[in-house]
Design a protein around this nucleic acid. Sequence first.
DNA 1: ATAATAGTGTCTGTGAGACAGTATTCT
DNA 2: AGAATACTGTCTCACAGACACTATTAT
Lengths: 239, 239
Amino acid sequence: MTTDNFVTDNFIEQIQQSKQMGSAQAGLSRYETPLVTVDIVVCTIQQNRLKVLLIRRKRAPYEHTWAIPGGFIREGETLEEAAANRMQEETNVENIYLEQLSAFGTPGRDPRARVITVAYYALVGADQLTLAADANAEDVAWFSSAELPHLAFDHAEIVHFALERMKDRLETSSIAFQLLPQKFTLTELQRVYELILNKSLDKRNFRKKILSSGILKDIGETKMEGYHRPAQLYSFLAL
Amino acid sequence: MTTDNFVTDNFIEQIQQSKQMGSAQAGLSRYETPLVTVDIVVCTIQQNRLKVLLIRRKRAPYEHTWAIPGGFIREGETLEEAAANRMQEETNVENIYLEQLSAFGTPGRDPRARVITVAYYALVGADQLTLAADANAEDVAWFSSAELPHLAFDHAEIVHFALERMKDRLETSSIAFQLLPQKFTLTELQRVYELILNKSLDKRNFRKKILSSGILKDIGETKMEGYHRPAQLYSFLAL
DNA sequence: ATAATAGTGTCTGTGAGACAGTATTCT
DNA sequence: AGAATACTGTCTCACAGACACTATTAT
């Protein structure tokens, strides 16, 4: 599961050595060749909370500290493929929505070497959660976005950036549906909005807005849950 | 002016050699260490047009083809500092508004080596244009955003990305004022909006919206231009 | 009957957009 | 007087937000 993490950490030391040799030979000390990684803020909704997937580091620096999944870009991979692949390798989550956030490259963000990371965020639907479940619970875990532990490197900044970006995208894009199963109730959809925006919304205004936008399809079915009136099920109508 | 461009192009070949040696020694052929550059879409308003600053390449690949300025990240530079410095070195434009767009890293975007670039856009105010003017006109020139020549690498995609981003930011940020002198008329401001959005706006609605937003300060002065009624001058009121 | 959630309509204020004529300056 | 640009106000419509009660299901 996290064997790749081990490879990554070893690799930085090895690269540092080979780089020094190469640079000395070529006389290029003024330039450095930074290392490039991808890091992914993986989000889902679970237990009525917005959750972020973290892995616990096994080696220094930041040994035993939680971090977001990531790793090196391999030959032939696009940046987005690299993000998808590193996420799959480290957390067993695959085939989900990915969007680039920004590159982070402040000198010193990794104490070992100059490492520039291209950060992505990923959204895991509630019906895809079984995929993530068989990741080793000791090393990989979901944390409430509001109660994150101390994070390695500049990962706290990256997660914050992701959560803010999601607020923007919620209104201008259709990301909310990425966090729900294919069939969902309006109350469930409203909950997604509330968790991302981190504020409560008026039920009548929310339903009015969503339904009048025409992006939902009322499939005839209902969903019973508890001893009360069942809810209408909807599906996302792609444009 | 573009000596750095020369260094950049030579450097890629040298790095390719030293990388191969280093990788072979460490047995790490599965990983590659991509090169990282910054590239900058520099924009201004000139002759009633939205213009983009381009440099003409002197060496293969894409010899004699126009490209956006950019170059390697140096030791100790943040990404934004690198963008500001490479821009200053290649085009003599300095001390202006910069914002990161995205990282571009599709394999093959540079035919020589794996190069990942962190793209920025920059806005040059009309009163800062003298700085850019003494760049060598043979190698550096402003092009109307609507009439760009063929561009090297994936630079056409990056410029397109920048122009789209500017449309978004125009409404949610204060970037328009970065393209104007400190004192400007409402007609000039409207022209900036029209050029970025690429559509004409109603004068009364525009003025109503801008003035009611309270971000402008009416300094008492007026500006005469031609044989007609002079216009009120305003300045941007920072929040 | 009770508990629990689903579902529904009105009013008000704000902002966007369509639209045409008067004001000021210089030649 | 004419040319050229600056400047101004009203109406309509769509959307956002405040606000409270009825409907349906199972126990």
